[in-house]
């Protein structure tokens, strides 16, 4: 039993790298959870022409907006489980008790969430643009706007997920509190694609998305960390 040294007085906390790697490992082991939002994204967009008719001109007009709205919904759907498993098995509480600031744990989780939802959504978007007859000028911009915008969505959504993690059925409530916060991303994302289709420059819109992302990366994990402390309180 006496193989141990005296208590060191300081607890060893895992660094950001360990947190990030662990989250990525967990995400990759649950591949079905990654696939579901993407399948949802593709399925709903495939339903769209069935609803509004197959007329190419109409679809072309709606394509960028619909792809963006569906990306929003797909992100939101996957957000509910962001902290849930860790809350139930107690590791969220252990994160809150770690001497490592909770900010980094939330940041690691949000980054991994983006890598397994936002990034594949952005990669899939040209395919859906093709199906919905998106004008050729819009593809590149759609990809980049989704790439930047979905990262903000993951970060902002983490606040909502942290606020509702202690509730037994947060689904619709999470949508209710997070959706209004998604508005600026949606507006500038679709605005950028529209500008590209109309033949204007769209770097200004992408710059706004990037600025929003920078602010979200700085502030959203702080708010989510506060929300986790509230949610794990007895």
């Amino acid at each position: 039993m006496s193989m141990l040294d005296a208590p060191t007085g300081r607890r060893v906390a895992p660094g950001f790298g360990v947190l990030f790697k662990t989250e990525l490992l967990l995400a990759l082991r649950h591949r079905a959870d990654i696939a579901n939002p993407l399948l949802f994204f593709v399925t709903v967009l495939a339903l769209l022409p069935l609803g509004v008719g197959p007329e190419p001109a109409l679809l072309a007009k709606m394509a960028s907006g619909m792809i963006w709205v569906m990306a929003l919904l797909a992100t939101l759907l996957s957000q509910e489980s962001l902290f849930r498993g860790d809350f139930e098995n107690g590791s969220l509480e252990q994160m809150a008790l770690s001497p490592q600031p909770l900010y980094f744990a939330v940041l690691a989780k949000s980054m991994v969430h983006w890598m397994v939802t936002g990034l594949p959504l952005a990669l899939l978007s040209p395919l859906l643009g093709l199906m919905l007859n998106l004008p050729a000028a819009g593809y590149l911009c759609l990809f980049f706007s989704l790439l930047l915008g979905s990262a903000s969505l993951s970060l902002v959504g983490a606040v909502g997920a942290a606020l509702t993690v202690a509730l037994s059925r947060p689904g619709l409530l999470l949508a209710l509190i997070v959706m209004p916060l998604y508005v600026p991303v949606l507006i500038f994302g679709t605005g950028a694609v529209q500008a590209a289709i109309d033949g204007y420059g769209y770097s200004a819109q992408l710059a706004v998305l990037a600025a929003y992302l920078a602010a979200a990366a700085a502030l959203a994990p702080l708010a989510a960390a506060g929300a986790i402390r509230i949610s794990t309180e007895t």
């Binding site: 606020l163 916060l181 508005v183 600026p184 502030l219 929300a227």
Partner: peptide, 18 residues
């Protein structure tokens, strides 16, 4: 309170973007 604060930070951004 936390949600209201998050909303407060976002309101000017939402208004401007709209």
């Amino acid at each position: 309170a936390l949600l209201a604060l998050v909303g407060t930070v976002n309101i000017p951004i939402i208004y401007k973007s709209v």
